Amino acid sequence: MTFRILNAGDTALTIEFGDRVDRRLLATVAALDEALAQAIGKGGLHGVVETVPTFRSLTVIYDPLLTSRAEIEPAIRAAISSSAGASRRVGRQWQLPVCYGDQIAGCGPDLADLAVACGLPPAEVIRLHASCTYEVYMLGFLPGFAFMGDLPAVLSRPRRSEPRLRVPAGSVATAGTLTAIYPWPSPGGWHLIGACPVPLFSAAWQQAALLLPGDRVSFRAVGEAEYASLVAEQETTRRSPLPPISFLVGGDQTVR
């Protein structure tokens, strides 16, 4: 297994396995993350604060007053060797509703332009986007923002040349080979094709992010009336101690 370990300041190091988005690299990162979590759970790696997985690398953050790279690196190298070939966590499966297009103001304004760029009618873009089961590759950018792949190749387009200053929360978007849902209002340069009413993050939940790496997500197209009804149903979900597990359809259904 090819990798390199890089310093990331004086409180972290990064184990880098490649330079691209690739399912094999994702599996390697996930296996190492799990191996380190088990080591920490058994009392090893004293001084490690947290691990941060990405598409192709894993960053290990540590307290420099308690440990150092020289102290933790041997255990990390051992974990890399022991995790090689390990199976990934089998995640949960979700089916999330999406109101596609500009039926909901501000949430799907790019559907028509994306359809033109792909040489398809908007209805076919919707059908293709909703026909896949996507895997959550990683979380980042915003709390609860899940990068999901892989988008059908015909829908793959670069990000917008001019990012928006404000993307509404719940916006369903695509960029490159990925799709995502914006959990919060924020700037963003992805193509906005619809709206999802399901909250993706709450500090009231035991696991604050609804979607986790390894989870699988499919989308179900809904009309404006059903979307409005779902929004009303979900108004109290962020404050509830339980996430919206009614959208779970398979896999590990442990309440977090």
Rank of each mutant, 00 (worst) to 15 (best):
A225P: 11
A173T: 07
F141D: 03
F3S: 10
R77T: 00
L155F: 09
E162L: 12
G106N: 02
T51N: 03
I15C: 13
W94Y: 04
A228Q: 14
T254Q: 12
I5H: 04
R239G: 13
G43T: 04
S186E: 02
A169W: 00
A175N: 02
M1N: 10
T179A: 07
M1P: 14
G9D: 10
D150K: 13
G41S: 09
A195Y: 10
I5R: 03
F219N: 09
T59V: 03
Q93W: 06
P109H: 04
P109D: 04
A35Y: 08
V90Y: 10
L165C: 10
F147M: 04
E226I: 07
V249L: 12
E50K: 11
A31C: 04
Y100Q: 04
V49R: 14
E224V: 15
T236Y: 11
P183Q: 08
E224L: 15
V29F: 12
F141L: 04
L151H: 06
A225C: 14
M1K: 14
P74R: 05
R20D: 13
D215L: 08
V90I: 11
G106H: 01
R159F: 08
F201D: 02
L151A: 07
P109C: 00
A209R: 15
P185N: 11
C99P: 04
S186N: 05
V217N: 04
R77K: 10
Q234K: 07
D252Y: 05
H191Q: 15
D63V: 07
P158G: 01
V125F: 01
A204N: 15
C107A: 11
A105T: 05
I104R: 00
